[in-house]
């Protein structure tokens, strides 16, 4: 089970998941960018000794390429971590609400990932994990500029708080660029599905703080929460407007998308994400009944490239992959034909 996918959270008609990430480095050891292989093992050992029961430590070298990609698709690790998989590792708890990336850009990146709008809770979990690690590990910390990170964009708190928001109505009504521009101006970054440098698919936006220095963790989270509360309201308003003015067209769009997902035999990832966005909107507006938001999460995650192949138990070409994806989605939606 993966908590953010299989569980429910507040405001999950708009906010899919909330995440808090803390970047930490161990004192006196070069950052991963300048690290030799022998030393990366030393970091593994330090982390292994600091974690308690209930956590599994996996060296990525011992995993298959497919499994590594699945971890990325579940958002438990970043695409960056698997680039140098021979020197990196991941720690997970049972419900995968905590993941610790080892030797990504920094030695340690603690992440807490929860369903819905739960930034405070996510911070609490990450903060407690951080407390636990620092009992055994001596962090690189500077009195003036805080936690020292490999990239100066993370120095200070080392914290990146983010939410994955589904904003289809703001996109349809073309308000989205204004909203995102405003978010940018007050120091928030907007990114695509897999974080930095990735594109927006299926109307999913990842919104996070940009600055990590000069503000406390609580202030950073408070700021993001305030802005997101407004964006949630704006999205709901836009949905209400669409319903009031274009109800039949909106229903038509949603039912058509459902029809395709329910029946299609060949489905590309891009098309699938586009259609799922409509389904998610339909569920949020109670147009589509008998589907819940975590079923949509499952479809969203399981229809990605590596996941489809993992399900098939072998690597597939694009053509076969698209066929397999269509079958998977049909099954998930209850069509066993």
């Amino acid at each position: 089970m993966t908590k953010w996918i299989d569980d429910f959270g507040a405001e999950d008609d708009v906010i899919v998941s909330s995440r808090v990430r803390l970047a930490r480095n161990i004192e006196d050891i070069p950052f991963p960018v300048a690290l030799v292989k022998e030393k990366s093992q030393g970091i593994f050992t330090q982390v292994q000794e600091a974690i308690s029961e209930g956590f599994t430590f996996t060296s990525l070298e011992k995993t298959s390429e497919m499994d590594r990609k699945v971890l990325v698709e579940k958002h438990l690790i970043s695409p960056n971590l698997i680039k140098d998989y021979e020197n990196s590792a991941i720690v997970l708890n049972e419900d995968e609400s905590i993941s610790i990336m080892i030797n990504e850009e920094d030695h340690i990146r603690i992440q807490s990932l929860l369903p819905g709008f739960q930034l405070d809770q996510a911070y609490k979990i990450a903060d407690e994990m951080d407390d636990k690690l620092e009992q055994k590990i001596k962090y690189a910390f500077d009195e003036k500029i805080g936690y020292l990170t490999s990239c100066p964009t993370n120095v200070g708190t080392g914290m990146r708080a983010s939410v994955m928001a589904h904003l289809p109505a703001l996109t349809m009504t073309r308000y989205i660029s204004k909203v995102l521009q405003a978010a940018n101006q007050i120091g928030l970054a907007v990114r695509g599905l897999y974080g930095e440098g990735t594109e927006v698919v299926g109307n999913m936006f990842q919104i996070s703080n940009q600055m990590t220095l000069g503000r406390s963790e609580r202030e950073i989270i408070g700021n993001l929460k305030d802005v997101m509360t407004q964006i949630i309201q704006k999205e709901r308003d836009a949905r209400a407007t669409l319903l009031a003015n274009n109800k039949i067209r909106l229903e038509d769009k949603i039912y058509r998308s459902f029809g395709i997902l329910y029946n299609a035999r060949i489905l590309s990832f891009q098309e699938c994400m586009k259609l799922i966005s409509d389904i998610r909107l339909g569920v949020a507006l109670d147009i589509l009944k008998d589907i819940d938001s975590n079923k949509i999460n499952r479809i969203m995650v399981m229809s990605q490239h590596a996941y489809v192949q993992k399900n098939a138990g072998k690597s597939l070409g694009i053509k076969d992959s698209d066929i397999k994806r269509a079958t998977l989605v049909r099954r998930l939606l209850g069509n066993n034909d």
């Binding site: 407390d131 009992q135 910390f141 003036k144 500029i145 220095l213 000069g214 406390s216």
Partner: peptide, 16 residues
């Protein structure tokens, strides 16, 4: 890049 120069957030408990 940060707009600030001084850290005001969390400080490691034991180390600091």
């Amino acid at each position: 890049i940060q707009g600030h120069e001084v850290h005001v957030g969390k400080i490691p408990k034991c180390a600091g």
